[in-house]
Structure formats: C-alpha cells, structure tokens
Nucleic acid binder design. Structure first.
Lengths: 223, 223
DNA sequence: CAACTATTCAATAAATTTATTGAATAGTTG
DNA sequence: CAACTATTCAATAAATTTATTGAATAGTTG
C-alpha cells in the first residue's frame, strides 16, 4: 500500500515537473505569451522571437510533447496554438509569481515604465463599470488580426503603428482607455504617451486582453 | 526604443523561465507540495521525499535562489517555508494543468483512485454549505501539527494513523466528510475506506486544506 | 567557549538541454 | 503528379543540471 502511494506520487511529480520544465526556457515563455493571442505559424513565431526557424520548431516540439500546444493545418501553413485556457492560466500565475517575488522582474518593469509618464492604470473592475456606463472609448492597440480574434466588448481597433495617422478618429472630449496584450505588453505605454502628447484624455488598462477574457468579462469576436 | 523593448522582454522571460525551471524537477515539485503544509526542516523534508540530506539541501538552495522558499531558524534547526501564497498558487495551477492536459497524470490518478471505492467527492461549495448548516462532521486526517497550523472551520482532527483506535469518537448517524492536503494527497481515500467498512456515512472532500484556504473559505488555527 | 549537530559546500561524473547546420520530409497547389 | 515550400529531423558540440561523496561551516547549547 505504501509503495503504491510512493509510486503514484513519483509518477505525478515527474509528470508535473515535465510540464514545468517545458515552460522553463525563456524562448518558450515568450512563445506561450505570443500564442495566448491566437494561432501563429512557425515562421511568424520565429520572426517575432528572433530565433531561427529550425530552433523555433524544436522549441515548439518541446511544447507539443508537453501537450501545451497543438497544431492545425491551413493551406500550406501549420498553425500552433495553446491547447487550452489553463495553459495561459498557468503561465499567468508564473508571471504573477515573478512579478511579486522576483527582484529582477520588478526592477525591469519599473525601469521600463519609468521611461513613460502615463499615470495610474485603470483596473479591470473600473474599466468594466466604465464600459457598462458607456462613458469611455476603449482602444485596442494590438495588431488588427488579434483584435478580430477577440477584443474587449465595444473596444475599437487602432493598431499602434497606425495610431499617429488615424488619431483624428478619436475624440479629445471623451476619456480613452487603451490596452494591449497583457501586463508585459508595452504597446499600450507608447500609445498612451502619444495620445497624451497630443492632448487626448488617455489612460492605460492595467491588464491586457487575455486577463480580461480570463475573468469572464465581456468580449467580442469579429471574424 | 525598439531595442529597449526587446531588452525588457528578454530580462523578463529569462527571469520567468528561471522560476519555472526551479519548479521543473520532480523532487522540487514534491518539496513545494510538502511546504504548502507549513515549514519543515531539511531533515524532515529529506525523510519525507526519500532523498539524502545533502541532495535535499541542494534542491532547497535552488528553490531559495529562485525566491520560492525562505528560511527561519528555531533553536538548532533551520525551517524552510514557501515565500508566499502565490508560490502555492502557481504550483497549484501547474498541477491543475497537469491534471487536465497530461495523459500520464490522469491515468495515474484514475488507477490509484480505482483501488478505493469511495463514491463521489464533495465539492468545496457543497462542503461550505454543509459547514454553515452544521449538519456534517468535517474530519481532518492529516498529521496533528498540520491541523494545528490551520484547518477547515469546525473540523476535528484524527490523523489517519490514529483513526482505527479513535473511531468511536465519531457518530454513525451523522455524515462525515474527510479531507487531507490536496487533490494529490491520498490519506483521505484510506480514511474514507476504513470508515465505510465500519458502517460510517463517510465521503471525501474533493480538494484539500490548501485549496480551501486559497478560496478564502473559513479556517481556524489552534496554535 | 568547547562540544555538538544541522546544514551547506566543493568536486566530480553522468545525464540532459540547447543552438546550429544542412539535409530530409510531408503536404499542397496548379 | 511534378514542383514547390513550410516544417521537421539528425548529428554535433557546448552548456547546464543532477546526484553523490566526504569535508567544512555556522550556529546553539550548556
């Protein structure tokens, strides 16, 4: 009886460690972060992370073997995607852990944010109220395809690289809350800085799209 | 600007990967699982996990460097403990991920549970209602010191190894819900089997103490 | 402060992980 | 079905992780 219990534990811990190990590499961390936004091809992932295609493929195989990502074919391309919500949930709780416990991470975030002067962030609860009340422009600054795959309810899309050109579409009278992927995505900082420089009432959302969706707050797809 | 963003990301992903890596070893997984119950000495941890003292110490150093555990001295002994709740939270979400996605883990749990025939488990919500209503005996079968460090509100303590001797303390008329550490702790299975054999109305709690406490459900300390 | 004891350290060998290169493969398109 | 292209594979070298052993250390107790 005791030995069976020991064997059971051994199996479980070995397997859980494999999952953690699959996450335990900087490149794979970044891949998961990216794939949380939706499916991407090996080529896109490689370009995004600055790795070679072969190396990217290797890391994707590791994630696939750990059953953290799955593939689907569309035409000539293979798309990689997370196998489920709890993959991102686990990733997010590691990020959370890092952000509260890891001195280096805290320092890096502080340093980076210090470069901008964007004031206080809007919390998810606060934003939810504002969305319900309808007295806010919610601005999605991610690339357009990510917006179409899913965005905060009633948000409008102006990707960061088009923001300067399309800034007139926004009103200077209404409050604007901008958001991007998550608490490690800094597109939103650039967006808010740009908006404020030009006299818009802009604030940033504290979390990102995925965290919003994970809370079960209202989202929309337009595919 | 772009390069700074890249550098920021690199730092963060490298650090997050370190945290994941610190969790990415079967022994360390088990250590975290144990430390979630409270502080323990190197010697105790070594005995519990079946490792040598030196090797246990090495693994504890890894966890300490990753800021997942911290030490405190009491008399001649050094006690190791988790640095915070989100360490267990991250561990638990990895466990959750394993339990839903990992075929080996699911198989191991099924096989092990199959050895017992304890019927359906009681969910946390269900148990909370029962506790409020007061029409249930909540039975903590963990070692007594873990009980004293914190237990489900109104639970009584009979460690598994004393259960046979002290079984008369329980009533055959009232429903008994037994629990132990968590969803990977199998003490509760043995306890429920024993109780049912002797004619008690026993069921098992689906989660464990830590998961209950993490939900913010009522607990008591008796130290 | 001497004796004691829990814990850590340093060195080492074996095992595993990682990135790179160039070739192979598998699937699609017309 | 031939040509094409995205992706994977196999081999390799360098780097990292792991367990073990025996010695060293740091802190406590009386």
């Amino acid at each position: 009886m005791k030995t069976t219990a020991r064997k059971f534990k051994d199996t479980v811990y070995v397997e859980l460690a494999k999952t953690a190990k699959a996450l335990g590499n900087p490149h794979r961390m970044e891949i998961i972060d990216l794939l949380a936004q939706g499916p991407f091809t090996v080529e896109t992932i490689a370009r995004y992370t600055g790795m070679t295609i072969a190396n990217t493929s290797q890391h994707l195989q590791v994630l696939k073997n750990a059953q953290l990502v799955a593939i689907s074919r569309k035409g000539n391309y293979i798309y990689y995607q997370l196998t489920g919500e709890n993959v991102y949930a686990a990733w997010a709780s590691l990020r959370e852990l890092g952000m509260t416990h890891n001195t280096e991470v805290k320092k890096a975030i502080d340093d980076y944010r210090k470069g901008y002067h964007n004031g206080d962030a809007v919390s998810a609860e606060e934003l939810l109220e504002k969305v319900h009340a309808g007295d806010v422009i919610v601005l999605d600054v991610r690339p357009e395809d990510e917006y179409h795959r899913g965005h905060i309810h009633r948000a409008i899309s102006i990707p960061l690289d088009q923001l300067q050109a399309r800034i007139r579409e926004l009103s200077k009278k209404q409050e604007i809350v901008a958001y991007c992927r998550g608490s490690l995505c800094m597109l939103v900082e650039e967006a808010v800085t740009l908006l404020k420089q030009q006299g818009y009432k802009a604030r940033k959302f504290d979390d990102g799209y995925k965290d919003w969706a994970l809370k079960g707050y209202p989202t929309t797809m337009t595919m």
